[in-house]
Design a protein around this nucleic acid. Structure first.
Lengths: 192, 192
DNA sequence: ATTATAAAACTAATGTCATTAGTTTTTGGC
DNA sequence: GCCAAAAACTAATGACATTAGTTTTATAAT
């Protein structure tokens, strides 16, 4: 029984690598244990079963997203900020597909920590939409819109939903342009 | 051994109900068999294991989507057509969440039937974008954009991704307006 | 240094699920 | 009535998550 010196962060790190290379559904206690040279019941010393492991993945995922987005948004405003957010979103999802997937599962209503981590990310999206004259609830609605656009693209791209061999980066450029134009048109309307 | 008179369509129908009420991940051979008052190995007389069952769900799902969208698009054009497509998309996803989820899994490269069923749905999206002066590949890119927008919204809504208690239908209205304005702006630009 | 304790590993066992092999029964066509 | 194929079955295997109970090791207190 040579103690391996495993701790939660390195366990989650190993799980993250598994998720990003093999897909989230490949992250089982069995595969993770195998990878860590451990028997799977031993994982219960660090994590409360598979659901908890998934939650841990969501937590790191959200933290990393916040960090990534914050960095991308630094010193940006207006269209630059929106575009920066979009491209940061895309690049994160492409670089960390498994983590991205882990983040999608909704938090339990009583899981305030996970909820807060999600809110932090959403707040960054809110920041990127400053300066378009959106009032009150409009901001929230518009954040939902841009989240929809970005998540939809990322999700379809990753699932192979776009069958035709036509450059996906071109599509993403058009997507951003279309959204920005729409956003500005809404701004104009709101001013009337 | 009282023969139950099961056939593929009714089996898929039962699976559909399970998926729509309990979620796609609740559709296992075990639960389906239980529901049909059968032992699970007996399902192999009708379906080639769980992957094939999922494929059957995707096939019916896509067929029903095509039907639903075609009906919604009848006699519509311009903004009406785009809006009709959007609302049909949303209403389908809300009415058949399990089926919608089943449809998302990508087709194997050699699965021409499933691929065609997907293309049929995409073609309806293409139709709805007629009359915006999009040229060549622009149509395909823009279809990807609207699919992203709609899938993203539906997916986030279903996963409970929108935490704040603010009316989702309001968001969806704004989403459509924003997309339509963006679409028209792109149209204008393309004319120059 | 010694020892007590808690953490971290382990083995063994259970239950669920998908899947395969091989068996029985029914039914529809002759 | 008969027979072949379809549709059900039982039995068994292997993957997985999880629980219970055991052993070892590290560390902190004496």
């Amino acid at each position: 029984m040579p103690r391996i010196g495993l701790d939660l962060p390195s366990l989650v790190h190993a799980a993250t690598e598994l998720a990003d290379t093999q897909g989230l559904e490949a992250v089982t206690l069995a595969t993770l244990a195998q990878r860590l040279q451990i028997r799977s019941p031993s994982l219960y010393n660090h994590v409360n079963g598979l659901p908890d492991l998934r939650r841990q993945l969501a937590l790191t995922g959200l933290a990393q997203m916040s960090e990534h987005f914050r960095h991308a948004l630094a010193d940006k405003s207006g269209d630059d900020a929106v575009r920066a957010f979009s491209y940061a979103y895309l690049s994160f999802a492409r670089a960390h597909p498994g983590l991205y997937e882990a983040v999608q599962r909704a938090a339990e209503p009583d899981d305030l920590l996970l909820q807060q981590a999600g809110n932090d990310v959403v707040q960054l999206a809110v920041n990127s939409l400053e300066g378009y004259g959106l009032r009150g609830d409009e901001v929230i609605h518009m954040v939902r819109v841009i989240r929809s656009v970005l998540h939809g693209f990322v999700s379809l791209e990753r699932q192979g939903g776009f069958g035709i061999p036509l450059d996906l980066d071109d599509t993403f450029r058009l997507l951003n342009q279309t959204f920005l134009e729409g956003l500005k048109a809404m701004q104009t309307k709101a001013r009337e």
